Structure formats: structure tokens, C-alpha cells
Amino acid sequence: MKIEGFSTSAVAAGVKYKDRLDIGLIYAEEPAVTAGVFTTNQVIAAPLVLDMERLKQGRAQAILVNSGCANACTGKQGMQASVETSRMVAEHLHIKEEMVQVSSTGVIGVQLNTDVFRRAMPELIAGLGPDNFEKVAEAIMTTDTMKKTVYRTVEIGGKQINFMAMAKGSGMIMPNMATMLAFVLTDAQIGYVELNDALRKAVDTSFNRITVDGDTSTNDMVLIMANGKADNPWIEEIDSPEHRKFIAGLSEILKELALMIVADGEGATKAITIRICGAKETEDAVRVGRTIANSNLVKTAFFGEDANWGRIFAAMGRSGVRFNPEAVDIYFDDVLIVKNGLAVGGDAEAEADRVLKKRDIRVTVDMKDGSVCEEIYTCDFSLDYVRINADYRT
């Protein structure tokens, strides 16, 4: 898919490794309505500090992104590097400097080498074209084992609206936001207030529902650019039918990307959906599900294909949500293993063990205390997770 008015480029500049795509550029021919969601970590990387200030205008025209160096915990020099690299883009594209968003991912505490960007900039600009979206998705990978892209068309107001989206993320993944970058391009005609509202709602039910290891990064960000090239009626009223349809389409796209991140969790062998039902409040269901999903003991049990439901119960008990343990049912896929707080017995555990041999697993916990159901998405902890993160800087 191509979206008129957007072009992309990626180069192997040698930010950290040789002969590996590591700098990407997304360019809108005209200023696009742009919204963003950023990390909630108190330690915020220099690019994000700059981006958040610039996005107050609700418009952007370019996104410069690199892997190999996070440019986080780099002080005044790191901020200057973000400003300087964005200036390079602005000068080459003949646009205003404040219209450039910058994004970095990689090792924390390492200064960004601006000379690398200066040398790469002519090739990066010359390479801009409509067919390089996948190359940019490759350029933002760190420990990812696969590119993560989604293309979608949604009909709104009788007109076709196109979406192209990419993400990176594999480890250091935990809401709110995670070690992940995501960029979405659309040709929708939509106002800033409506776009910002849609992005936040879509992120809340997608990227903010995943966890690989419980760690939240310094560089997390999601940006969406809408260049208005589609012929749809302007979406300029929150909670209008058109706005709700836009949110639904965006949410589906971001959820697909989020599930790719979970499935690509560092060393992951299982992709696991934790579904909490029968809760009184959404917050309760999410808190219980997140506590289960972040339990190292639960995650290692899944890696070992051991239906150790007691670890799930223990995680629920420390979630801070009050419930009646004697009412709880637990299912592994469709296998009921716990009923009213007690082991079902018989062949249930052996059947559950067979479920755990699958790649994609669903755990359903029925608290029988209300009508709310919510999902959290996670993966197992494997031996490879330890190896990857023990050797990350080398």
C-alpha cells in the first residue's frame, strides 16, 4: 500500500553496527495533523522532550528515527544532538525545524554521534520515495526478530481511508507504554483534537495492555500523522459516528501491532492472552490481569509448559484487588482447571498441560464478582530472554 503525500527512506549509517539499516525518515509533503503518546517513565530521553514541546502545535512534517542509540540519560549534549539532527532534516527538506519529530532507540547512556547523521543525510534524503515503508520498519529494529507492519483501509463517510503502521519492540515492554516505537500514517481528514483523542483511546486498549517483562523504557512513543489527502468528510467532532469508526479502525491496527510485539518478546516461545472476567470495574480487571502477566513464576511456568495454576492464584492475591478466592474459575483455553477456587482434578491438569504446548494460549479467570471483562497480552520467560539481556550492550 502507498498513501499519497507520504514518502519514506532508510539507510545503513553505522550508528552502532555496519551494514545494517539504522536511520529512517518519514516525510509528509505538506504539514500533517500529528498527535503523539509518550513514555510515562520519569527518565525521558532527549528526543521525546523535544518532540513533546514541538507537538503542542499539533502539526509535523517529518519523523527522523534511529536505532542503535537511545540518546537517553545524555544530558545537554544529548538534547543538542536531537536538535542538531532535526535541523539537518529541516535544511535538506526546506521545512521549518519545529516540524521535525525525532526518535531514537537502543542503548541508554550513549551519546548520539551526529557526524554519522551528517554523512548519511544526503543519501537518506535522496532515497525518499513511496516504497520504503518496510525499510524504515527494519531500520528501527533492535532485538526484534521480525519487522512489524500493518496496512489497512477503513470506510468512513462512504470514503476509503488508508492506514500504514509500523512498530518495534521485543523487550523492556510494560505499560504505560513500553520499549517500543510506533508510527502510523493515514490520509484521513481529521482535526487535531479528534486525532489526539482517537490515538489515546486506541493506545489504551492495545500498547497499554501488553507486557513482556514489566519494564518501562525511556524512549517509548507512538506518533500518528494525518495528511488529509482522503476525500472523507472532515472528522471534527468527538464521539461522532465517524470519529468512533476511526477509533475502531485505529484500535484494531494498534492491537495487531501490540500482539506482534508480544509474540516477538525476547526469547518468547508462547504468546499468552490473560482474560479477566467477572470483575466489578475495568481497573480491577486490568490490575489483576497485569499482575498475573508480570509474574515471573507464572511466565516461567508457561515456558516449562506446566499448568501450575497456583501461581496464577497467588498473583491475583497480591494484585490489591479484593475478591472471593472460593468463587474463582480458571480456564486454560477451554479446559476448566479450577472451579470455585479448587482444583477440578481428574484429567483436567493433563489436558491443560497439552494446551500449554501450543504457541498461542488463552487463560481465562472468572472472578464472578461483576460483569466486566478485560484482556492483557504477554509472553513466557525463556532461557533466551536472560541470554539476550545479559549480552545486550555487547
Results as ranks from 00 to 15, higher is better:
Lys339Glu: 06
Asp333Asn: 15
Thr300Trp: 01
Ser103Thr: 04
Gly265Thr: 06
Lys16Val: 03
Ile312His: 05
Glu374Met: 08
Gly214Pro: 09
Gly5Leu: 03
Glu281Phe: 15
Arg393Glu: 10
Lys159Tyr: 03
Gly36Val: 01
Glu351Asn: 15
Gly320His: 02
Ile23Val: 12
Ile173Thr: 07
Ala46Cys: 13
Ile156Asp: 01
Leu259Lys: 15
Ser67Thr: 06
Met177Tyr: 07
Thr143Lys: 14
Trp309Asn: 06
Asn232Gly: 05
Gly278Met: 03
Asn113Asp: 14
Arg354Val: 15
Phe381Pro: 14
Val107Thr: 13
Ile253Asn: 12
Asn227Val: 10
Arg87Ser: 14
Asp369Lys: 00
Ile312Trp: 05
Gly5His: 00
Arg54Pro: 08
Ser206Met: 10
Ala178His: 03
Ser9Trp: 01
Ala198Cys: 01
Thr269Gly: 02
Thr291Arg: 13
Arg200Pro: 03
Lys147Asp: 01
Glu134Cys: 11
Glu242Thr: 04
Lys168Leu: 04
Phe133Glu: 02
Cys73Asp: 04
Leu195Val: 04
Ile253His: 11
Met52His: 09
Ala126Asp: 11
Met1Arg: 07
Gly78Ile: 01
Glu266Pro: 04
Ser7Glu: 13
Phe246Trp: 04
Leu93Phe: 08
Ala72Leu: 11
Val110Trp: 00
Gly346Glu: 02
Ala90Gln: 06
Lys255Asn: 09
Gly14Phe: 11
Ala293Ser: 10
Thr8Asn: 09
Asn324Glu: 05
Glu305Met: 15
Phe6Gly: 07
Leu336Ala: 04
Gly265Ala: 07
Asp215His: 09
Gln101Ser: 14
Gly310His: 11
Asp384Glu: 14
Gly346Met: 11
Val222Cys: 15
Gly75Ile: 06
Pro31Gly: 04
Ile173Arg: 03
Phe246Met: 10
Leu257Asp: 02
Glu281Trp: 12
Tyr17Leu: 12
Glu374Gln: 12
Ala258Cys: 02
Met221Val: 15
Ala188Leu: 06
Phe117Asn: 01
Ala307Pro: 15
Glu194Ser: 10
Gly249Arg: 09
Val344Thr: 09
Gly228Tyr: 07
Ala352Gly: 12
Asn176Leu: 05
Asn208Phe: 04
Lys56Tyr: 07
Gln101Cys: 15
Asp329Ser: 09
Asp115Val: 07
Lys299Met: 10
Glu375Thr: 12
Tyr385Val: 13
Ile3Gln: 12
Ala60Ile: 06
Glu242Trp: 01
Glu374Leu: 00
Thr378Pro: 08
Val262Asp: 09
Val102Asn: 00
Val344Phe: 12
Asp391Val: 04
Asp215Gln: 08
Ala10His: 06
Val43Ala: 05
Val344Ile: 08
Gly78His: 02
Val37Ser: 09
Arg20Val: 14
Pro233Lys: 07
Gly68Arg: 01
Gly127Trp: 00
Asp384Leu: 11
Ala285Gly: 10
Thr39Met: 08
Arg387Ala: 13
Val100Met: 05
Asp115Ser: 13
Leu50Ala: 10
Ala226Lys: 06
Glu349His: 11
Glu138Thr: 14
Val100Cys: 02
Pro130Leu: 02
Ala70His: 01
Ala315Thr: 10
Gly78Val: 06
Ile253Phe: 13
Val15Ser: 00
Asn389Pro: 08
Leu383His: 13
Ala188Phe: 03
Thr179His: 00
Thr105Lys: 08
Lys229Met: 13
Asp360Thr: 09
